[in-house]
């Protein structure tokens, strides 16, 4: 019981700290942190499937883009306001993860990686193919006037930050809650030993499907919010690269930890940002850091922390 209380305390503390930072941070880091929080939701969504359920998808950009396009296309072409458009974004993510889930769960392991990769690639190409509506790779701007919910202007830095924080807190607490319930434990059991979980009488397939739905919808929420908060939607976000990013962030921060995705996203952002100040060869520095991390912190940053000291970390 105390461990559960400790972990709620920690995560509420993190959210409070982020709230406090809203008032302290200089402009540049304030803007960055808002972005990192939104992308961390994408990583958290990814973590539910990869970190807890053990399913490695290479196609999550499809869900991120489904959210982004679901939201932005309704704003752009149907003239909807941001609130309902976000719902459309979430619904697209849910529908997309349902289709991908039903089909791809017939496979496992490496075949699952490829099937998700292929679906995402088809989604990326479709965004280009329907260029008349999406403007393809070039993308389009979501005009400032449309980026309002209930009269709150989301292009204002403070509002943007707080909106990102709300989304982040919701995703964080959902993840925390999930890992503390029976559902989350079954997911971990599937990751550790699928056969045994099945023999214990759990419906493995149904749990996996639910994990994909949750994971995909959370990723879509991140995509829709990203478009809304930063005013742009484009096919780049549907490309393979953006499927690899959450994997990288999660592995860096610690797969199967609640805070890992956020820590990984933050770490990767500042790694690129700071090393590009030092030298134009920032990719070299980033690459070396990744290699060193795998050598010396194999479980990711938070995972390593859990292994060494804080064993109760969720």
């Amino acid at each position: 019981m105390s461990e559960i209380r400790k972990s709620w305390g920690l995560h509420i503390g993190v959210v409070s700290l982020l709230l406090a930072l809203n008032f302290i941070l200089p402009d540049y880091h304030h803007g960055n942190l808002a972005r990192v929080m939104v992308l961390a939701c994408y990583a958290m969504g990814y973590n539910i499937l990869f970190g807890y359920t053990g399913l490695l998808s290479l196609g999550h950009a499809l869900f991120f883009a489904a959210g982004m396009y679901g939201m932005s296309l309704t704003v752009q072409h149907l003239g909807w306001s941001a609130g309902p458009a976000i719902i459309v974004g979430l619904a697209s993510g849910l529908a997309m993860s349902l289709i991908v889930g039903i089909l791809s769960l017939r496979t496992a392991g490496v075949a699952f990686m490829i099937v998700t990769l292929m679906f995402a690639q088809a989604g990326y190409l479709a965004a280009l193919y329907f260029g008349e509506y999406t403007r393809g790779d070039e993308g389009f701007v979501i005009q400032k006037a449309a980026r309002q919910i209930g009269g709150i202007d989301l292009s204002d830095p403070m509002n943007r930050y707080l909106a990102a924080l709300v989304l982040f807190a919701v995703c964080l607490f959902i993840t925390l809650r999930v890992v503390q319930t029976g559902f989350g434990r079954v997911l971990v059991a599937i990751r550790e030993n699928e056969e045994r979980t099945r023999m214990l009488g759990y419906d493995v397939h149904r749990h996996k499907l639910l994990a994909i739905l949750l994971s995909g919808t959370m990723s879509a929420a991140a995509g829709a919010s990203y478009g809304l908060l930063f005013g742009y939607a484009g096919a780049t976000f549907a490309s393979v690269q953006y499927s690899i990013f959450p994997l990288l962030w999660v592995l860096l921060g610690g797969a199967g930890t609640v805070l890992g995705p956020f820590v990984g996203t933050l770490f990767m952002f500042y790694l690129i940002d700071l090393s590009s100040d030092i030298s134009t060869a920032y990719m070299l520095i980033a690459g070396l850091t990744l290699v060193l991390l795998t050598l010396f912190a194999p479980q990711g940053l938070v995972g390593e922390l859990r292994r060494r000291t804080l064993r109760w970390l969720p």
């Binding site: 993308g139 400032k144 930063f230 005013g231 096919a235």
Partner: peptide, 14 residues
């Protein structure tokens, strides 16, 4: 590149 322009311009405006 156009996609970079279009992705960056809203931030420049804000």
């Amino acid at each position: 590149f156009s996609h970079v322009v279009i992705g960056s311009a809203p931030r420049a405006g804000e």
